[in-house]
């Protein structure tokens, strides 16, 4: 039930775009709603993170994919889980939506990431509930490519334009 709820939020979020309410439909993220906001420090000290966070995740990426190491504090799933903010409804706001954690600096620094063309931008359950899948499929079947594109554009960090999936 609870898991369904999360899935519904997640699906609802994605489909919110479909009913063309835009990313903002997830609601304004609430200041201080991320786990990280209640914590003292990041997985490394803050200056280090500012300068080297990408090396950290990229290293993690390689050792997870090639060596199977999952016991770590620097997985990309972990960054998202701790840093993602929530709206008034408690829905997670995509980590790369404009103004959100992984987007703000990158927009400023004109860095474009392709990570989120594959990686989920909100924490999702490991197995979506089957009932919800029907709903997803029903919607996905009618998913207009343009909407998909808009969704990606909205989710892509920063305003810098990039073709999704690269």
């Amino acid at each position: 039930m609870i898991r369904n709820k999360v899935m519904r939020l997640f699906v609802g979020f994605a489909l919110g775009l479909f009913v063309s309410l835009g990313v903002a439909q997830a609601g304004e993220a609430i200041e201080g709603s991320a786990k990280a906001d209640k914590l003292e420090s990041c997985v490394r000290d803050t200056p280090f993170m500012r300068r080297n966070h990408f090396e950290l995740i990229e290293h993690q990426r390689d050792i997870t994919v090639h060596e199977g190491i999952r016991k770590t504090d620097s997985s990309i799933a972990g960054c998202i889980d701790c840093h993602v903010r929530r709206d008034a409804e408690g829905q997670p706001v995509p980590i790369n939506a404009p103004g959100e954690f992984c987007a703000t600096c990158h927009t400023r620094a004109a860095v474009t990431l392709d990570c989120f063309s594959c990686h989920a931008t909100v924490p999702t359950p490991i197995n979506p509930a089957p009932e919800l899948l029907e709903e997803v499929k029903a919607h996905a079947a009618g998913m207009d490519p343009e909407i998909i594109e808009k969704a990606h554009a909205g989710m892509e960090s920063g305003s810098a334009k990039q073709v999704t999936g690269n």
Partner: peptide, 8 residues
């Protein structure tokens, strides 16, 4: 090509 790249 852009179209193919963009749509998949």
């Amino acid at each position: 090509t852009l179209y193919m790249e963009h749509e998949g």
